[in-house]
């Protein structure tokens, strides 16, 4: 607890830098998987591309469309990025390395990701553009749907540990990571996580080939940068939570410090997200919905039933 205040600055900085770095990592990885180079000109391996991108975004004309609702239009990106950054508050990066050790940490994470939906919805509405509106509607429907499974898919872990506290959950995995007993929960959480971060294949709110850029069509400059950063933060946060809940968090052999284990695992999950983006087509809006309600919801419920039964029989 006493470490909390000291952790705020590094976490904020780390998250933002991570999002920035991720832009470069993603472009290089996609380039590698797609038989092309990707950004390789600025600095060694093109890594300074992120600085160039940052400078570009910061100095770009930040245009607010005259037909938009100015207040909401400005507020929306802030809402997205703020709720995502708040989500990092509960993530345990190592033993005792966290900003706050909430006993409802998991619920706090779910609440914060849900708040981001409002940002997206507001952005779509405030732009006063038909494409943005369609994007905002899609995102509302999609995120409300996937919220349900996201929460339910994690309840198996909660049953096994009897706690919403993320540190307790990590410690409970000292004998074995939860991705084996909770494989169904992991799969559902992963799909819901991609949908929450609205990345391909579930990038329907901003499906480039259908809605131009969906809810952020009208955004430019720094506001656009915030929305993009929010998306990357969401991916990092989802990966970090996934590692915490299913892959033992910071746990690992002693030859590397816990924070390194945590970073490696999170990085691998992120790479997997990028690989998903490179390989899978985008389902249609209604197909995504029926996938959610007709397949993922039953799977989650079955998972809960089985976990509950096993947990009870072990206790009894």
């Amino acid at each position: 607890m006493e470490l909390g205040f000291i952790m705020i600055a590094p976490v904020l900085l780390g998250a933002m830098l991570g999002a920035l770095l991720l832009v470069w990592v993603e472009r290089r990885l996609l380039g590698f998987w797609q038989d092309r180079l990707g950004p390789n000109r600025v600095g060694p391996f093109g890594i300074m591309q992120m600085v160039a991108d940052l400078v570009k975004l910061l100095t770009k004309d930040d245009w607010i469309p005259p037909f938009s609702d100015r207040v909401l239009f400005t507020l929306a990106p802030a809402a997205i990025i703020a709720s995502m950054l708040m989500g990092f508050v509960v993530v345990p990066f190592g033993p005792g390395w966290h900003i706050i050790d909430l006993n409802i940490g998991l619920l706090f994470f779910l609440a914060m990701t849900s708040l981001a939906v409002y940002g997206v919805l507001l952005a779509g509405l405030a732009s006063n553009n038909k494409y943005s509106l369609l994007g905002g509607l899609r995102s509302a429907a999609q995120m409300v749907t996937y919220e349900v499974f996201m929460g339910l898919s994690l309840m198996g872990v909660v049953m096994l540990t009897g706690s919403f506290n993320l540190n307790t959950i990590v410690h409970a995995q000292e004998d074995g990571w939860f991705f084996i007993p909770q494989i169904l929960g992991l799969v559902v959480f992963m799909i819901a996580g991609v949908a929450e971060a609205h990345r391909l294949p579930f990038d329907l709110p901003e499906a480039e080939h259908e809605l131009a850029a969906g809810f952020h069509t009208e955004y430019s400059g720094m506001k656009f940068a915030l929305i993009m950063a929010g998306e990357y933060l969401s991916m990092i946060l989802t990966s970090a939570i996934m590692v915490t809940l299913f892959f033992g968090g910071w746990l690992g052999p002693d030859f590397l410090p816990p924070i390194v284990w945590f970073s490696i695992k999170t990085g691998l999950v992120i790479c997997f997200f990028i690989l998903l983006r490179a390989s899978i087509p985008r389902p249609r809006y209604d197909q995504l919905m029926s996938l959610g309600w007709k397949i993922l919801l039953p799977i989650t419920l079955i998972n809960l039933l089985i976990t509950g039964a096993v947990a009870l029989s072990l206790e009894g």
Binding site: W33, Q34, A207, A278, R282
Partner: peptide, 16 residues
């Protein structure tokens, strides 16, 4: 076509 149904990569292979 595969890009328009939301698949990101094939177009790069085919253009190569």
């Amino acid at each position: 076509y595969s890009q328009d149904v939301g698949q990101m990569s094939p177009v790069f292979y085919m253009f190569a």
